[in-house]
Design a protein around this nucleic acid. Structure first.
Length: 506
RNA sequence: CGGGACGUGGCUCAGUCUGGAAGAGCACAGCGUUCGGGACGCUGGGGUCGCAGGUUCAAAUCCUGCCGUCCCGACCA
């Protein structure tokens, strides 16, 4: 009966949010830090989640005509040099390969040898190397549009890393498209942002705000950067995905040209767009509670875990048989285009087993013992409800309704996150109120505070910078759905045509 | 890269000030009793005390340097 902790995760969110985040990941067994600075090992439970996300995204990309390809990890430095904004943005955080072998020195230690003529960088993103390929592939308007995506790892040598949210190496997809007209490229930019919005809201149950980045926050080399922004439980913003209209900047840098129907030679218009393993950090910080992560069913590593109650007697084998028959029945059910994912955990380790699955965030836990077997039922607990709020249900009925149950959990997670977003988003027109909104009451150990302030902004980069320097608050985006409204800039008081989203961010 | 905190079995930490046999709880393994329970008992495995130098008869402990982690900045998906 000894209840050691009231919560499975310590500290709680309220006590120490960043530490809580680390502990949730440890307790969920999704990933761990590696011996390599800033890099992570994604463990099977975390990778299964990523695979489900990849599958869903990949299907959506392909439905819009995108095809997958793969480009090199190494990029000649000269390629990066081709686009000025790009150099500015990425040069400071590139891993550089300068040698191609190791030799033993006099102390028998391995040291780099065989210096490369031209150093290579490990891709921080692939616009330039893919641009080089596009320049060779594209001759005529008949080759367009070219719609390519790659699933890859990239490296950005970050100053400060946080597992899943910002690691030196991370997994992502980068889409790169080439178009004959500006309009078509812009349309594609927005189309892919819509895919991301759909992914976030319908699959991850994370409500997002869509909008355009300011000049200061744009992708290096882009004309327009669009984004989805989500609110985490500490009320900070997380940029969960971006889609860029690159104009002709990269086309000119990489000489991506085509011959038009009118026989003129023209530069192409390109886009790029990406989401990464950062989304997993977003899931954690959107849905977890003080007992650990809660996985949204549509992408959950498993939907349901079966926990046979084994005693030291002759019923064990029949309980196991019954459990396997439940698993079989569940696996025959189709949940959003795939079979229901079932785990069986028959370890006899007491109540710790149940808690492990709570911390892993599996949507449904099902206990199966002799009593259930006799009643032809199972005993179900939902991860989104209190753990004592469990119920018995007929085995057949459970199999029949499991998909509805999963959808109900999925929808509940989304509605809860949406309510939180709304609760902590508000129009602010008064500078004092704005300052107060973004200033913690305790400076030594800042409590969770702030949120999204929807305020007027005159459009000046100076005002944007001043706010950032003073409060560490940035413009997350200029929302697409903002209304035209005359107002006064929250910082300088001069005329503004509409509101933007201010927040602290990851 | 600046400021702060911290590195002791897998995890959380005590021991460091004041140098003198590496510890606890949890986790793990075995056996037993329990068990629709984050159970209990007994037994057991596991640590060159972040790394490298130095001081000393003696270093987890003192000194120097380095590495790593976390927090706050600057930078960013």
């Amino acid at each position: 009966m000894a209840k050691k902790n009231e919560t499975a995760i310590r500290p709680t969110r309220a006590e120490n949010y960043p530490e809580w985040y680390q502990q949730v990941i440890r307790a969920s067994d999704m990933a761990e830090l590696s011996p390599v600075r800033g890099c992570m090992v994604i463990k099977p439970w975390g990778y299964a989640l990523w695979e489900n996300m990849v599958r869903a995204l990949d299907d959506m990309f392909k439905a819009t005509g995108v095809k997958n390809a793969y480009f090199p990890l190494f990029i000649p430095i000269s390629f990066l040099e081709k686009e000025a904004g790009h150099v500015e943005g990425f040069a400071k955080e590139c891993a550089v390969v300068t040698h191609h072998k190791l030799e033993k020195d006099k102390d028998n230690r391995l040291v780099p040898a065989g210096k490369l003529n031209e150093p290579l960088i490990v891709r921080p993103t692939s616009e330039t190397i893919i641009g080089d390929a596009f320049a060779r592939w594209i001759k005529s308007y008949r080759d367009l549009p070219m719609l390519i995506n790659q699933w890859a790892n990239v490296v950005r040598w970050e100053m400060r890393t946080r597992i899943f949210l910002r690691t030196s190496e991370f997994l992502w997809q980068e889409g790169h498209t080439v178009h004959a007209t500006k309009k078509e490229a812009i349309d594609r930019t927005y189309m892919m942002l819509d895919v991301y919005k759909k992914m976030a809201e319908e699959y991850l149950a994370i409500p997002v705000i869509t909008g355009e980045k300011t000049a200061a926050e744009k992708f290096p080399g882009a004309e327009i950067t669009t984004c989805i922004e989500a609110m985490m439980q500490d009320r900070k913003a997380l940029q969960a995905g971006t889609s860029h209209f690159l104009g002709q900047n990269f086309a000119k840098a990489s000489e991506i040209r085509f011959q038009s129907a009118m026989e003129t030679e023209e530069y192409c218009w390109t886009t790029s767009w990406g989401v990464s393993t950062r989304l997993i950090g977003g899931i954690i910080m959107t849905h977890s509670d003080d007992n650990g992560i809660i996985l949204p069913p549509r992408v959950a590593s498993a939907h349901v875990v079966l926990l046979p109650i084994l005693k030291k007697n002759e019923t064990n084998e029949t309980v196991m048989e019954y459990t396997r028959s439940v698993a079989e029945a569940l696996r025959k059910k189709t949940y959003h285009h795939g079979p229901v994912r079932v785990e069986i955990d028959d370890r006899n380790i007491g109540g710790a087993r149940n808690w492990e699955w709570i911390k892993k965030g599996v949507p449904l836990r099902v206990e199966i013992g002799p009593k259930d077997m006799d009643a032809d039922s199972v005993y179900v607990s939902r991860r989104d409800r209190d753990r004592k709020d469990s119920f018995a249900i007929q085995k057949d009925s459970f199999a029949e309704h499991i998909c509805d149950l999963l959808d109900e959990i999925q929808d509940g997670l989304y509605q809860k996150a949406l309510a939180f977003l709304k609760e902590n988003t508000r129009n602010i027109d008064d500078l004092d109120e704005f300052n107060k909104f973004f200033t913690p009451e305790s400076s030594g150990k800042p409590e969770i505070h702030g949120g999204f302030a929807i305020s007027h902004w005159c459009g000046s980069a100076d005002c944007e910078l001043a706010i950032k320097e003073r409060l560490n608050v940035t413009i997350r985006c200029i929302p697409f759905d903002r209304e035209k409204e005359d107002g006064q800039c929250i910082h300088c008081g001069s005329h503004s045509e509409g509101r933007v989203v201010f927040a602290k961010s990851y």
